[in-house]
Design a protein around this nucleic acid. Structure first.
Lengths: 336, 336
DNA sequence: TCACCTCATGTTAGCGCTAACATGAAACAA
DNA sequence: TTGTTTCATGTTAGCGCTAACATGAGGTGA
């Protein structure tokens, strides 16, 4: 234990050592130390060894804050998601961070909680850290947010959607088409009374429009739409609010599974195939869980991690195609 | 579209405006602009209005990189988790970020992927950004990681566990006791052949020890232990590898649900209460999903978001109790 | 011999901001 | 009047690093 009072560690005394302290100890100039850290090949082996020794002795940890200011490169990207808990967006964050971390980029994470004002605040907060790119789920909710991003002059990747007029780059899929695909499938199955349950966020709403338009185009009555709070276990009770419905598209798998749980209580769930289900249920997201429950969940599968990795790539390469449609897949199992 | 070639935005031309450009435009010194941003009360209303006007005109976004260097405060915290996708740790990240973001702190997120070398690299990367605290799941896997953290002289919060010799602060629960509690319950239920399925990470292993020790202390044979890869859907097939077992503790709910899915295929799952189950299953984490499936999942409930919020608090207040046991709860439903 | 490389290292200036200390005007008390 | 306080604003220096440009030693070719 050292005699310093500085809590909580017990390492080298006093403030964190700087480049020039290392330089002094190694008997070189600070730029040489900087080179040992960043471009070791440019330094003679003996000098390098001496510097490395000094760094180890002092427990030197480079200060990237200072480095970033001097070089105008922060090696960081800002990531904005509605929410990270219990959310498929976690896959996207994982995907992009797996791609970016090995390259020396750090991820600065912010959550908007589906709140436009908070989104704007978080965007401003992110930008004030001068990230080299911003990756966000969806598009800015306000004109102000949009302006901030445009003025930042860095790559901006919008994900989980395919906006018509993106700020810069896009990695997502067509939520409208996903709704269409589900409606088509249910119609082909002979379902008549469709309903949609989910949030009224932009992407959920686009799914709803696709779903509704296709149902109408097929000559069905307009589907019911039940807007649920996030984290609403209300999906469990949703069935009671949808009398007569024989097919449901849930905007995400969690809602779908909750809805199925309600169906089970009502005696309307079978362990057999889709054709045996009094009420068909299709989710979106393809949670692993969907394959483990009974009946297994039919769902729109979306590759959240691929969205993240693609977004990371779009962040790094400024040329080339700036709009990547990663598509989706209707995965049919036993629920509908 | 402006005439600038700078992609991708079309905002004010050229590089991002600086404090002193705003100052020049408003006819004040730069420190006054700085005050308008950080301590507006110290600036006369008219001056403030003039400066705010200039900031808006120029689209000024403060540069926190420079500010951090000058003030030696980055207003950021480093967060290290094993993984964020499909993971209960996302709750913790959400909890701490909900607490820290309103205070102006940013979250720098890194993932170790349960890899000690990567963990050390990520810790070094985090520290080089000079966060004002580090919050991590578990404890450093290596001596090197531990040293780095001790030398950093910032609050360090270890979570999801209660290490005997923490570096600084702790917000978690006793994984050993969780294992004990599950074993006790299963023994009381009259189960004889226990088994544990899950990973061999430090926390999973502590759960296993508690589970095993209690089983042995109750006079049962040593439980089987099946080590599964993460993301192993192997949990589905686990039952086949555990002949004769009548009670299983899964280190997390995902494994528990997968295992139940295997039981169902084997005809060993009932829709009735725990007493009717040929094989009792207890999970850990209390995923919402566990209440939606049938039979409902008995589980050790842990408040991931409370862990995150508590960790955030420990980060901000350096005095007071540095060890918070958030406990756990054995939630009994129908699976065991 | 000289011009001209290459290589290893150094010098200088400055990134954009803030801490700490100054300044000067106005207000007020004795 | 003079000193003292308060308030609004300014000046100066420097945070720790890196870009850009020296410098000087040693080698190379004609």
């Amino acid at each position: 234990m050292s005699s310093e009072l500085t809590a909580p560690g017990t390492g080298p005394a006093g403030a964190a050592p700087t480049l020039s302290e290392v330089a002094k100890r190694a008997g070189v100039s600070s730029i040489t130390v900087s080179r040992v850290v960043r471009m070791p090949d440019l330094v003679a082996p003996e000098t390098r060894a001496r510097v490395e020794r000094a760094m180890r002795d002092l427990g030197y940890v480079p200060n990237l804050v200072a480095g970033a200011l001097a070089s105008a490169r922060t090696n960081s990207v800002g990531v904005l998601v509605p929410t990270i808990a219990n959310s498929i967006f976690a896959d996207t964050v994982q995907g992009l961070s797996d791609k970016l971390e090995p390259l020396g980029f750090s991820v600065i994470l912010a959550q908007s909680r589906y709140d436009a004002a908070r989104e704007d605040r978080m965007l401003a907060a992110l930008l004030s850290r001068r990230p080299e790119a911003i990756i966000m789920v969806g598009s800015p909710a306000t004109e102000e947010g949009s302006r901030l991003l445009r003025n930042a002059r860095i790559p901006i990747v919008e994900t989980w959607d395919l906006p018509a007029n993106p700020i810069d780059a896009v990695a997502g899929f067509d939520n409208y088409k996903a709704g269409v695909a589900v409606a088509k499938h249910l119609v082909a199955q002979g379902r008549k009374q469709l309903a949609f349950i989910g949030g009224d966020d932009p992407r959920g709403t686009r799914r709803w429009f696709g779903f509704r338009d296709e149902a109408l185009a097929s000559g069905l009555a307009e589907p019911r739409r039940l807007i649920l709070d996030r984290k609403d276990s209300g999906s469990v009770a949703a069935h009671a609010r949808l009398p007569g419905v024989d097919a449901v598209f849930a905007a995400n798998d969690a809602h779908a599974i909750g809805f199925m749980s309600g169906l089970r209580k009502a005696g309307l769930l079978r362990d057999g195939p889709a054709s045996a289900q009094p009420v068909a249920v299709i989710g979106l997201g393809d949670l692993e869980m969907g394959q483990l429950i009974s009946p297994t969940l039919s769902t729109i599968s979306v590759h959240g991690d691929a969205i993240g990795r693609t977004a990371a790539t779009l962040t790094l390469e400024r040329g080339g195609e700036r709009r990547v449609d990663l598509g989706f897949e209707l995965v049919l199992r036993d629920s509908g």
